[in-house]
Amino acid sequence: MITMIAAAAENRALGKDNQLVWHLPNDFKRFKNLTTAHHIIMGRKTFESFPKPLPNRTHIIITRQADYQAEGCIIVDSIEKAIEKCPKGEEAFIIGGGEIYQLALPFSDKIELTVVHHSFEADAFFPEIKLDDWELVNSDFQTKDEKHLYDYSFETYIRKQKTPQQ
């Protein structure tokens, strides 16, 4: 199963200058809980935004740079090759950035989305979800507090099965 996991604002903003534009500790905890012990697929810029590789995960980096190296990581040049590197029958996660999410959307079975209830100036955006293709199966609204400056919701979408007439 291929799952896209992201935090995006109401205007689909993901971040600016390769950084998140909000800080939501509970979103980080959820990300860690869901992705630990799994393969995670990301673009080179997303990987380079981390101070070090994320622990207890297999990193697959998509890049056009033929000579790119990152110790302990799998390097590929397409979303298709990244998916091929993931164990069959196990959940793998697409973790960004914006271009990678767009490429991965047709291959994805599930979306774990944290919606930040605010709009931000950004240079990277999450792709638009066509609700004809996706079913919202869970939504958990969280109110802002002393550690979270914005209201947010954890949402889970599952790709709808096509019927023969579609």
Rank of each mutant, 00 (worst) to 15 (best):
S139I: 07
R44D: 07
L103S: 14
Q166F: 00
R64D: 08
A13I: 07
H117I: 13
R159H: 03
G72K: 12
D132G: 12
I129C: 01
Y157G: 08
P51H: 10
A8E: 06
N33A: 10
I83M: 13
M1I: 03
A13R: 02
N56R: 11
E135V: 02
T156G: 01
I79K: 06
R30W: 15
F120R: 03
A92M: 02
F93S: 06
C86S: 12
F31Q: 02
C86R: 04
A13L: 07
L136T: 01
P55F: 00
R57F: 11
A9K: 13
R30F: 11
K88F: 05
D145F: 09
I5T: 03
Q161F: 05
T36W: 05
N56S: 12
A124G: 15
K16N: 02
N138Q: 13
F107R: 15
L20Y: 06
F28C: 07
I94K: 00
Y157M: 06
K29L: 07
I40H: 04
P53I: 11
R159T: 01
M1A: 05
P25C: 09
A8W: 08
I111C: 06
H118D: 14
G15S: 06
P106R: 01
M1Q: 03
M1P: 03
H23V: 01
K85E: 04
H38E: 01
T3W: 05
V116P: 02
S49E: 13
K88M: 07
F126C: 11
R44A: 10
I83F: 11
C86G: 02
G89L: 08
F28L: 15
G15D: 00
L149Y: 05
F93C: 06
V116Q: 02
